[in-house]
């Protein structure tokens, strides 16, 4: 199939970016979206041009690196990661516009690559539990209701890809942060740091410059892991209760 690609090219964080248009006429329907970019980059290298920089790692939908805003949606027309998107989702002759995630807290490093270390700093602010060293405890020593375990597991499915931020008109990171807070709040192991975690992760999220939640639900619609906005409601509860009842003055 033939496609026209409009890709955001930007040399560095400070440089002014612009769209460049490329024609590709030997694309297979079975290629993944990233393989299509490999083909483009091969062509560019052969012509002595700078290849398009884009993030990727696992190429199997679990690392969350492959951030691309494709035709107005994070990760393109399907609710999946870019590496799991295939060219059969597009029509022959179609024009495809590819942009980087846009958010103040995700500065562009080059072309389609953005710096998502703000997510790491939020995670470091409270996304952990304290565990005593020693002998390995029995796997089922602590009884956890199946429903809680499932909800925690669903929240833990978040791969920090940033699609929620990319989809949100406020560049809000609440779906990500709420998934992390929920994942621990629902389990006994998360209780010791529960209140401090909610306060610190929200404070770090604000310090990084992410926006507030307008409850548009755009994030949920785009999340490749199907994280639900019920987590955001839980985070709100966790945060208000923590602020009102913790010893952190």
């Amino acid at each position: 199939m033939k496609i026209t690609l409009k890709v955001w090219r930007q040399k560095s964080k400070e440089a002014k970016g612009e769209f460049k248009t490329y024609q590709l006429d030997h694309v297979s329907q079975d290629m993944s979206f990233l393989e299509m970019f490999d083909v483009l980059n091969n062509d560019l290298v052969k012509k002595g041009e700078d290849p398009v920089a884009f993030d990727h790692d696992c190429r199997e939908g679990i690392c969350g690196m492959c951030s691309m805003y494709i035709n107005g949606r994070p990760h393109g027309p399907l609710q999946t990661t870019t590496c799991q998107l295939h060219m059969r989702s597009f029509k022959d002759g179609q024009t495809i516009t590819v942009e980087p995630w846009r958010a103040k807290a995700f500065p562009i490093i080059k072309d389609l690559v953005v710096d998502r270390s703000s997510f790491d700093r939020i995670q470091q602010a409270g996304g952990y539990i304290s565990v005593n060293t020693g002998g390995v405890p029995d796997a089922n020593e602590i009884a956890i209701p199946k429903k809680d375990a499932d909800a925690a597991f669903d929240a833990a499915a978040c791969i920090q890809c940033g699609a929620c931020v990319a989809a949100c008109k406020n560049s809000s990171a609440m779906l990500f942060v709420s998934a992390k807070i929920s994942q621990y709040a629902l389990l006994p192991q998360g209780q010791p740091e529960r209140k401090t975690r909610a306060e610190n992760m929200v404070a770090q999220m604000d310090a990084e410059g992410f926006g507030a939640c307008s409850n548009t639900l755009a994030c949920e619609a785009e999340c490749p892991k199907g994280i639900s906005v019920t987590n955001i409601a839980r985070m709100n509860r966790e945060y208000y209760v923590s602020k009102l009842s913790s010893d952190n003055v």
Binding site: R73, E99, R102, K169, S214, N215, T216
Partner: peptide
């Protein structure tokens, strides 16, 4: 919220959310 978006918006946007939200 506007500032969090940064100065450069998307060229193409296909938002699925409700208009009033």
């Amino acid at each position: 919220n506007r500032a969090a978006r940064g100065p450069q918006g998307y060229a193409v946007s296909n938002n699925t959310s409700h208009w009033s939200s």
